[in-house]
Nucleic acid binder design. Structure first.
Lengths: 206, 206
DNA sequence: ACCTGAACACCGTTCAAGT
DNA sequence: ACCTGAACACCGTTCAAGT
């Protein structure tokens, strides 16, 4: 084991450039998708292209930094829902949020799924934390007898991601996201359960 | 209707080059996905890069030519299933095949969904034909009381495509495609099985 | 008619030169 | 330590020159 040197605080300009780059990247990715030009990102951040590469050695590293934030937010949201709602509702609310996020950024779902299956990824830890938070909601809903016992956490991510990706492709599909989501969630419910009477009422706001 | 000039048969070498290009494109796209290098395609076809562009003015045109074949195959398969199996089974079998095809070629599902929503696309006709063939299977299964009446053809394509896309991302997911597919199809089934007396409430506003 | 490859304007990534 | 932009090897697309 190497003893790390004190890891002195980064220079103020370096820290500032990194923040500007992340900010610019979030904007550009939201506009153009995950395969946006990195030159555009550097330009928007008003920073040399080399500076971008100094902070993020490649596109994947930049996307990872963006995703890392999101994973932490989602893990936190899972804990909130777990406190505030009954098990089935908590799970559905969280999946809806997860799914909507996947729709917002074209190309990010691919990165997410790749990360989830690659233990070497620097994001593996935060991704796993989020996944476990979601799996906790699932387990609770299964204990309550509302969700099929053979559904796994991996299924959950796969389907929520798939619906999110789908609804990000065309505006007409975005409008149907709630409906698609409801169909998928119905597939997760315990067969014959009395949940069939009341469809999940999409709150209407986006 | 414009009267087309005799549309003389293309020169033999042109026809041959076009075939070689399509063949090479199918291989390269299967290996590298829809964003594969067009130079690679031309190289594999042993044809000048300019020749590729003479036959297909851009990447989209090339992908369209590949997709067109597939649409026709799928429409034909729908008619076969309709003859050979009972309504629910026919629908499920067809969806499975559709879904597996989406998984096989990374990036094609996006093109497909875009085509489906763009009447100006040269593929719109064959895409619509396939879509109607699938919608026919859906309608039959709904008449038999097996599939929720509020499910539309658009839902069907969206979900089957989403699952296919998903399972093409990682080998671990490919192994689970059947399972994911089963979960989604369960969401389409009439709640409570065939004995369902009433359609799900809240289906009126679609 | 059709084919070809050089040419153009981009891109991701690297790295020597600056401060 | 950090920043910068020129440089390299690609790419999609166009087009003058060939047969």
């Amino acid at each position: 084991m190497t003893v790390e040197p004190p890891a002195r605080a980064p220079r103020a300009d370096a820290r500032r450039n990194r923040d500007r780059l992340l900010e610019a990247a979030a904007q550009v990715v939201a506009e153009q998708g995950a395969q946006a030009s990195l030159r555009d990102v550097a330009r928007r951040a008003e920073v040399g292209l080399g500076t971008l590469y100094r902070h993020f050695p490649n596109r994947e590293a930049l996307l990872e930094a963006l995703l890392g934030r999101r994973f932490e937010q989602l893990a936190e949201r899972a804990r909130e829902f777990e406190r505030q709602a009954e098990p089935e509702q908590a799970l559905v609310d969280w999946l809806r949020e997860f799914s909507a996020g996947a729709a917002a950024h074209q190309g990010l779902p691919e990165t997410l799924m790749a990360t989830l299956h690659d233990p070497a990824s620097p994001l593996h830890a935060s991704c796993t934390a989020m996944r476990e938070a979601g799996a906790g909601l699932l387990a609770a809903a299964q204990r309550a007898g509302r969700i099929r016992p053979d559904v796994t956490g991996a299924d959950l991510f796969a389907l929520a991601n798939a619906v999110g990706w789908m609804s990000g492709l065309a505006p007409a599909l975005a409008e149907r996201r709630e409906h698609l989501f409801a169909l998928v969630v119905d597939g997760l419910r315990t067969p014959g359960g009395r949940a069939a009477g009341e469809p999940p009422s999409g709150a209407g706001t986006d």
